[in-house]
């Protein structure tokens, strides 16, 4: 009878085989994907949707293990990190994607987070600015980068002679400090205006988007290769991220807490106010969060080309794909 004891009964064998097969199938279908996302900047509520998605388990729901990495000041552009394969996904400015694409980097935006760019030209105190014409005769502090060519593009659109405006590099990231030295400074509404408001400093700002230079700010992007090889992972990541952002705009407090969970040194009140200021830029009511418009991409491309930020023309539609947002909103 020993022989019988060693043998596995047929029914058991079938069960074991079936179980193994089922496990194999499930591991094929729900294989946990390990991805990373490189943020455009340090941990803050600018990326509240991502932190919320992580904290609320939305990534987990999509069987994703997501590593969230803030900016690497050694290699500041998230586009570079993703292109080099150091990160799967990146959060970066739309213009950065366009420039990189123009330079031949195979990166592609898959969703827009900040539909309206928080980049503004701000002044504090008695100086009131609301339209480009208000800049005439003013001393404006703008560093290099998007703030600079956006400014130029806006002035250009408004038909203002650039020589009537003094533009200097304030050599500082601190807008409020800049604003004390300059009439107008390049600023982020979600940062500087919030800080000014919190400190009770009267302020005003020109929104370039209102004057013909509308730009997407943060977009989610990855490489063409990754999209081609892992469309499912891309879709899952994006679905969870958008869900995180929907949660964040509707529940800023929760999202702030989720962000602070990643960096407890953050000042909660500011982060919350910043997020609240971000909400109208993310969720404008026109389109669902994340959905991109070809017209916007075209316009951004045109501006960048006109401003010679992009010198090599390319098919702008290669810089983004709405494939995944369409699937998510289906």
């Amino acid at each position: 009878m020993k022989k019988t004891e060693k043998m596995i009964p047929r029914s058991h064998a079938i069960f074991i085989i079936f179980t193994l097969f089922a496990m194999l199938l499930s591991s094929c279908g729900k294989k946990t994907a390990e991805v990373s996302v490189r943020l455009k900047w340090t941990t803050q509520t600018q990326f509240a949707g991502i932190f919320t998605a992580d904290e609320q388990g939305f990534y987990n729901d999509e069987n994703l293990k997501v590593t969230i990495e803030p900016v690497d000041f050694e290699q500041m552009l998230s586009v570079d990190k993703v292109v080099e394969g150091k990160n799967t996904f990146g959060i970066g400015a739309a213009d950065e994607v366009l420039v990189a694409r123009s330079n031949g980097a195979p990166v592609r935006a898959i969703a827009v987070i900040f539909r309206i760019s928080p980049q503004v030209y701000m002044s504090i105190g008695d100086i009131k600015v609301s339209k480009p014409e208000d800049l005439i005769g003013k001393k404006v502090g703008i560093g290099q980068g998007s703030g600079f060519w956006t400014f130029n593009a806006m002035i250009n659109k408004a038909g203002i002679d650039p020589s009537l405006i003094t533009v200097e590099d304030p050599k500082t990231f601190d807008t409020l400090e800049c604003a004390q030295r300059y009439d107008v400074c390049n600023a982020y509404s979600t940062d500087s205006i919030v800080k000014a408001n919190m400190q009770g400093i009267p302020n005003s700002a020109i929104w370039p988007g209102d004057y013909g230079v509308p730009f997407y700010a943060d977009v989610v992007f990855t490489t063409d290769d990754f999209i081609a090889k892992n469309p499912d992972v891309v879709e899952r990541f994006l679905r969870a991220t958008i869900r995180g952002w929907q949660t964040a705009v509707e529940n800023p407090e929760t999202a702030t807490d989720a962000t602070i969970a990643f960096d407890p040194t953050l000042e909660r009140d500011f982060q919350l106010q910043s997020l609240k200021a971000s909400v109208p830029l993310v969720d404008t009511g026109t389109l669902p969060i994340g959905v991109m418009e070809p017209e916007m991409w075209q316009q951004m491309y045109d501006i960048l080309l006109a401003q010679k930020v992009i010198t090599t023309p390319f098919d702008v539609s290669s810089a983004y794909t709405s494939e995944f947002m369409d699937k998510i909103n289906k």
Binding site: G209, D210, P214, P280, G285, E295, M296
Partner: peptide, 30 residues
């Protein structure tokens, strides 16, 4: 204060070029 603004990418403008249009409620940051 609204004069001079450019709404070239806005729906009410783009659709408005073609026909009578009503937008859904949209948020105006300014």
């Amino acid at each position: 204060s609204q004069e001079g603004k450019i709404f070239s990418t806005q729906t009410f403008y783009r659709q408005g070029l073609k026909e009578a249009t009503v937008t859904p409620p949209i948020y105006d940051v300014a």
